[in-house]
Write a protein that binds this DNA or RNA. Structure first.
Length: 390
DNA sequence: TAGGCCATCTGGTCCT
DNA sequence: AGGACCAGATGGCCTA
């Protein structure tokens, strides 16, 4: 058997690995045939347009042998092939050789391939599980309306960055800046989704206010923006999101709708639905802005029970958390003990080190819910306006 | 129908 | 040698 390409005397052995071949680069081969060639690594593929030296090596590396007679036959075949010359008179180099493809070997190759496939599947499932865990601790979590993988990673990166900035600043964070950091590089739908979760009007935090947060903290403010609930969406009062609530979850809706999917979780607090201390493989408590940022409605019966993981975030003087008490901690070892902490009653905001605190008054739960709903509508309206203008 | 997202298969490479 | 990791290819699903 030959270990060099049959017809490429001047071939340079740059990496042209089989996996990198566009499938179409084997023009006369059906995909199934290509597949079978890849799987069985049939050395008898003399008709193949693109003989692949790597595949040849792969075949020879097969550690498993057939019975003794079979092996002897193969060795005899190899000896006969030694010192053969190719069409150009070049002596083929010695070394590992292709071994005769036998039915048994093909079967073993198939079995190994299937095992490798199973391992790869399992590995990817583990990766997806980890990604799902990540989704739970970044802003805007929803089990039914998942962020895409890439958006999850981007948002997580931005989230870490924004939190780092907040902590390093050691002072009350600026919501606008935080959200801007959070949304850097995100797609428009995801940006609006985040905005919806943050109860911000996306266009506002992206373009307006000169860095000043104008987070609406009063009913009057909202009423000025939206005379009645749903008016901004052209829906009847109280109707707005109900249709979305009943809509079948879909890829589309998970990207482009907000209120209907998120309104049920206004009072939710913990990303883990109150399962204190539980998070898949998580070492430290999740950095979560739940109650404002991360909204989860999959375990509504548990939401709000625990303040373990929710991070109160209030950047607006005069306005506190949007939900009940919770605590955010970094570095449970205490070496770098930060708290961002608000208490719902006479809410106290703590940011930075233990010695750095700022106190802010808070809202009652009723105004929280109202503001949240209106904020979501604002975000949705913003997005709808954006799509219409495109 | 195009485009986005995803799961899966696959072979090459790296590491133990 | 075998498993983990990686990236390309492919096809399915969904929505605009």
């Amino acid at each position: 058997m030959l270990t060099l390409p049959y017809e490429e005397p001047n071939v340079t052995y740059e990496p042209r690995f089989g996996a990198n071949y566009p499938r179409g680069s084997l023009p006369d081969l059906e995909p199934d045939l290509i597949h079978s060639l890849n799987v069985t690594l049939n050395p008898e593929r003399e008709g193949a347009e693109e003989p692949d030296p790597i595949h040849s090596l792969d075949v020879t590396s097969d550690p498993e042998e057939g019975d003794i007679s079979e092996r002897e036959d193969e060795e005899e075949e190899e000896r006969e092939d030694d010192n053969q010359q190719d069409e150009n008179g070049l002596t083929r180099k010695r070394g590992p050789r292709r071994k005769k493809s036998t039915k048994g070997r093909q079967e073993r190759v198939k079995v190994r391939r299937h095992e490798a496939n199973a391992r790869e599947r399992s590995r990817m499932h583990g990766l997806n599980d980890a990604l799902e865990s990540l989704r739970k601790v970044v802003p805007c979590y929803s089990k039914t309306q998942k962020l895409s993988k890439i958006e999850t990673l981007r948002l997580a990166k931005n989230y870490i960055w924004a939190l780092s900035e907040t902590l390093s600043a050691g002072k009350k964070p600026d919501l606008l800046g935080f959200v801007q950091t959070l949304c850097k590089g995100l797609s428009q739908p995801t940006t609006n989704l985040v905005a919806g979760c943050l109860q911000l009007k996306a266009r506002s935090f992206l373009t307006d206010h000169n860095g000043e947060v104008t987070y609406p903290g009063s009913t009057a403010h909202y009423n000025n923006m939206y005379p009645y609930p749903g008016a901004d969406l052209g829906t009847a009062p109280g109707q707005g999101c109900s249709t979305l609530d009943s809509a079948k979850p879909s890829y589309h809706s998970r990207h482009y709708s907000y209120g209907g999917q998120y309104e049920p979780c206004y009072d939710h607090t913990s990303p883990e639905g109150g399962r204190e201390g539980h998070l898949d493989g998580q070492i430290s408590p999740p950095l979560n802005f739940n109650g404002i940022f991360s909204l989860k409605h999959d375990e509504p019966e548990e939401y709000g029970k625990s303040g373990q993981y929710g991070m109160r975030y209030s950047s607006v003087p005069g306005h506190g958390s949007l939900s009940s008490a919770s605590m955010y901690r970094v570095s449970p070892e205490g070496r770098l003990h930060y708290e961002l902490h608000l208490r719902s009653a006479g809410q106290t905001y703590k940011a930075g080190t233990q010695s750095q605190q700022a106190e802010l008054p808070g809202w009652d739960s009723e105004s929280v819910g109202r503001a949240t709903r209106l904020g979501l509508r604002a975000s949705r309206q913003s997005y709808q306006a954006g799509t219409q203008s495109q």
